[in-house]
Structure formats: C-alpha cells, structure tokens
Amino acid sequence: MNELEQVELSFNDDVKRVSNTKELENLRVLYLGKKGKITELFSKIKEIAVEEKKAFGQKINSIKTYVEQKINDLKNKFEEEKVKSEIANEKEIDITLPVSTGTGSLHPRTSLQKEIEDIFISMGFTVEDGYEVETEFNNFDAVNVPKNHPARDMQDTFWLTNGELLKTHTSASQNRILRKYNGPLKAIFPGRCFRNEALDHSHENTFFQMEGMLVDKDVSVANLIYFMKKMLSKVFKTDINIRLRPGFFPFVEPGFEMDATCTFCGGRGCSTCKNTGWLELCPCGMIHPNVFKNAGINPDEYSGFAFGLGFDRLVMLKTGLDDIRYLNSGNIKVLNQFGVEA
C-alpha cells in the first residue's frame, strides 16, 4: 500500500513542475510508459497475497485513471495556450485589399436575351434563328408590305448590291417559320435589324428586336391580352397591366400598340413614362390573312397573333444606359461593368 501512495505522491509532486508539452510527455513516459512507475505497479500484482489482490488492483487502476486524467487536462491546457499564442502572433490580414474575380462580361443584350428566351421556353415556345441578309420578298412582300407601299419608305432600308437587303424587322422571318410549322406554333425569333437612319442617343442603324408568334385554331384578341399580361409580368417580375390601342402595321389586322403599366412608377407617372403611367412597349396584332396565305396557310383555318419587343429599349430600361450607341461601340469600359448578368 505504501508503495502505491508513494507513486501517487511523487506524481503529484512531479506534475507541478511540468511547464510545457515536452515535459508533459516525459512525465507520461515516466508513469505510464512501458517501464513507467504505474505500469510497473501492475507487474507487482502477482506478488500480492490473494485476498489483497483485488483491492490492490482497484487501487492501481484508480491511480492510473487519475494520472491519465491529469496528463490529459494539462495537454489540453498547453494546446489551448499554444493556439492562443498563435492567434496573438498572427498578422492581421487587410481584408479590404481588392480582389479580381477574373470574370469578363457578356453584352447586356446577351444576358437579357437569355433571360427572356428562358421565359418563352418555359411557356413552350421554340427559339428560331433568322438571317440578317434577307430577300425583298421575305422582308416586305411576304408580310403584306406590297411594292410601293409607304412602309418601304418609312423604314429606310439598307439595300445590297445583289438585290437583297439587310432585314429591317424580325418579321422578315415570319414566312419561313410559318412554312416550317405549317400550322400551330409558338415561336420567338430574336434578331438584329438594320435601318438606314442617322445615329443619335436613341437611334441606331443596327439594333435588336425580339418577335414572337402564336398560331392555332380560333386564337383571339382576348387570348393575346391574356398572353401579353402573363409574359410581361414574367419579364418584369411584377404584375403588369396592359392596354391596347389601335396601331397600324401591315402584317397584322387588327394591329395594336400595346402599353404596359410603367414599371418605374407603378403607373403613377414619372419621367420614364412621360407622366402617362404607361410604357409603349410592344406593337402586336392578329396575324394578317395575307401573311398566312403567303406562307401557304389557310387563314380561315388558323388564326394567331404576333408581337414585337423593342429589345434594345428594354436593355436600356433595364441597365440604365442612356445612349443606345454604346451597345455597338465596343467600349470595354462601358460594357465590362455589366458582368455576366444584366
């Protein structure tokens, strides 16, 4: 018994002198190592009288547990101190230093076009590609703009040396798309259009439009109103009210100018909507029977509507760009600001 108490006393003595991890490890070896004082005590069990063996064993075990506990506590204490001192010695990082994400930029048209296309795709529309160089037929005749119609003057056209032209509106694709589906269809066709006019902050000779058509049996003006509301509410991410006014476009009858509640003031009136509460957004109308006939579709069997979005205007509304000429300028300083989401 004496021996046991002695080991315990000497441990208590030794442990007080331990001041770092290394000394602690030495202490552990001294008591708990293969030849440690406590380990050796175990080997003495066999020398003990049978009736005392049990009590002796229990005593050693309790001393061992005690020593282990003590060493472990100290170990934790030293580690904690070490972490503390490391934190104390760590140099503070200037988290305000600048970083570069290395990400470039998409043209603001691209981001918005993708966003709007995705909305249409979610509504079951196909996205159709058109040409930029078009025939006179597709651009004018097919969409009911006959020869010498004032509309051919109204849109000053870039004619080409081979008799073709740069398309003046995305409607130039209507004939091809109507022929492709020859019946019910839901399609949008974004594209670049060209008009021979002088540039200023709101006029470009090269600009983007996005046009759509929906064709089926018995499509009505009431359907058009429903659709435009749903679609624009998605585009502007808020409930949009619309109103139709008479509008004249040769490829629709009846034709409409469509106004949407101004998204900037919610219809109360502001500078963007010239205090009317409405934004003139979207010419649209019921597809003209001649447009159907020109594509080989019977206008008594099918009806449908078409609509155009002045896409560049939307880009400007959305980005706050105040000069349309920036869009084709190649000015990296301007365009880089847009990142990959408009």
Partner: peptide, 18 residues
Amino acid sequence: TKYLLAEKYGMNELHSYL
C-alpha cells in the same frame, strides 16, 4: 460559348456592325 468565354476566360463580349 459566350458564358464560357466570359466566365472562365474573363473575356468581354462586344457587338459591332455588319
């Protein structure tokens, strides 16, 4: 392609004339 060039290669997409 556009997203790859802008996001991974840090490029700027530009539009010009025909």
